[in-house]
C-alpha cells in the first residue's frame, strides 16, 4: 500500500520532537478526522530554518509526510520553504495512495501555520503565505461509492 520511502519515514521518522521557545509553531488538522500535525521551527536572524521538529497524531502516511516535510524545509530560508508544497512532499516520498493525499496537504498546511506564527511574531511578510486554516480535515468530502 505504501512506498518504501513512506515506510522508511514512518519507521524511522526524522526530526520528531519539540523546540522550546520556537520561532514559529503551527498545529493543523483535528482529532475528529484522525490527523493532527504540529511543526516547530527555529529560524535564525537571516531567516534560515536551522532546526525543525514535528509531532503527529495520525496514520502511517501522516507521520511519513510530516517527517519528509521537516527534511525538505531544513536549512532553507523561510521564502524557500514556501516551495515545499503538498505535491513536493508526496513526490519526495515516491507518491502516496490516492486516499492519503490529504495527509500531504496537512504537512504543507502545518509548515505554513508555523511560518505564519513566525511572520506574525516578527511583523514580517512572506510572499505567498496566507493565514492558515485550522481545520482542513473538516472540508474533506467523503467519497461516494
Amino acid at each position: 500500500m505504501y512506498s518504501e520511502k513512506v515506510m522508511d519515514h514512518f519507521q524511522n521518522p526524522r526530526n520528531v520532537g519539540e523546540i522550546e521557545n520556537a520561532s514559529g509553531m503551527g498545529t493543523v488538522g483535528n482529532a475528529k478526522c484522525g490527523d493532527i500535525m504540529r511543526i516547530y521551527l527555529d529560524i535564525d536572524e537571516n531567516q534560515i530554518i536551522r532546526d525543525v521538529k514535528f509531532k503527529t497524531f495520525g496514520c502511517g502516511a501522516a507521520v511519513a509526510t510530516s517527517s519528509m516535510a521537516t527534511e525538505l524545509v531544513m536549512g532553507k530560508t523561510v521564502q524557500e520553504a514556501m516551495t515545499v508544497t503538498n505535491k513536493a512532499v508526496a513526490e519526495a516520498l515516491d507518491g502516496l495512495p490516492p486516499v492519503k493525499m490529504h495527509c500531504s496537504l496537512l504537512a504543507e498546511e502545518a509548515i505554513h501555520a508555523a511560518l505564519w506564527d513566525y511572520a506574525t511574531k516578527n511583523n514580517l511578510t512572506i510572499e505567498g503565505l496566507e493565514k492558515p486554516k485550522s481545520d482542513i480535515g473538516e472540508e474533506e468530502e467523503e467519497e461516494d461509492y
Binding site: 514512518f10 519507521q11 478526522c33 484522525g34 490527523d35 497524531f57 495520525g58 496514520c59 502511517g60 502516511a61 501522516a62 507521520v63 486516499v99 492519503k100 480535515g137 474533506e140 467523503e142 467519497e143
Partner: peptide, 29 residues
C-alpha cells in the same frame, strides 16, 4: 492519543495481525 492505522502498521512490522476501527482503515474519514 494515538491513531489506529499507525498502530496496525507497527504491529505488522512486529509480525502481529490485528484490526482497527480508525478512519484510515475504514476507507472513510
Amino acid at each position: 492519543f494515538i491513531e489506529g492505522e499507525s498502530l496496525l502498521i507497527m504491529l505488522d512490522m512486529a509480525g502481529i495481525c490485528g484490526s482497527s476501527g480508525s478512519a484510515c482503515t475504514s476507507g472513510s474519514l
